[in-house]
Write a protein that binds this DNA or RNA. Structure first.
Lengths: 153, 153
DNA sequence: CTCCGTAATGTTATGTTGTAACATTGTGTT
DNA sequence: AACACAATGTTACAACATAACATTACGGAG
């Protein structure tokens, strides 16, 4: 189930069970995030939707829709890059560990992987020893993807 | 050597060896970051310097100075919070591991600790397996500090 | 089916963060 | 003293984000 229609369908199902609405606009914005296949800033996403779907959408709307999508765990905001990505695992049903976002600083490609529980425990312990408690413990890390690394080399 | 004068003196020494200039303005901005003892946005830093040192400084200047301080490793930009902090270890001479910034989302207090090499290796391996290479691998994590945690509870 | 309340979207204005471009001033060197 | 370059000043603007209020769409009660 990797095609975009399948993913969107999954997203609709999920919203239905949450009694929320995946409206046409929200669907288009989510599609934009998925199809672009990388992290986009809100304004880049506006442009993408305009160019690819002929969709005119205001900054206000995009931010509201992104907020909704985040609430449904259909998208994430990457604070390192000030950009937004679709969740990598919309169409899978099993639970995941803590997410680690690998962000290519060259091309904004993003891979969402999962931290080993033991690694997470290490990080948590370090924090606790310092008098801090981790909250919202997803990790974002600046990377180069192999493609961009190859270009540099 | 924990008093602010000592730290500033260290910073000056360091700049001298790098043949760069820690000017009066730069010194004041760095002092602001140190004395506030938390992460400040650029504009908060402007206000802090204004209120505490009577220093009038433009946004442009602050950004330029922050850039300089980052280059000298006297300050860090925290992208999670869009704020800036002074480096915790200006006045120590020995090398450190990879920094992990624990940021209290309530009060912006920041603690800079160091990741165990084994933990770092784990993170790196996960990234590599996914086709990404970590760069600038400092870690920032959203936390609550014990003080703020106590207030909530 | 209609009416109503709420959710969603539109619209306008504005706040916040960050930088570009060019002018001026300061500082060390010859 | 003259020069070169570093630092700062000044103005304007770009990019990111939200507040406040108007309008439209939609689902449920009657």
């Amino acid at each position: 189930m990797n095609n975009i229609h399948g993913i969107i369908e999954q997203a609709e199902q999920q919203c239905k069970t949450h009694r929320t609405r995946l409206t046409e606009k929200r669907k288009q914005v989510l599609s934009g995030l998925i199809e672009s296949d990388k992290a986009l800033s809100a304004y880049e996403l506006i442009d993408f939707c305009k160019e690819n779907y002929g969709l005119n959408i205001s900054a206000m709307s995009v931010y509201r829709i992104l907020e909704f999508l985040e609430g449904e765990h259909l998208a994430h905001k990457l604070k390192l890059a000030n950009k937004y990505v679709s969740c990598a695992h919309i169409s899978c049903t099993h639970a995941h560990g803590v997410a680690q976002f690998l962000i290519c600083s060259e091309c904004s490609k993003v891979k969402e992987v999962y931290i080993k529980p033991t690694t997470m425990a290490d990080l948590q312990k370090t924090a606790q020893d310092a008098g801090f408690m981790l909250i919202g413990p997803e990790l974002e890390m600046n990377c180069l993807c192999d493609d961009c690394l190859a270009q540099v080399a």
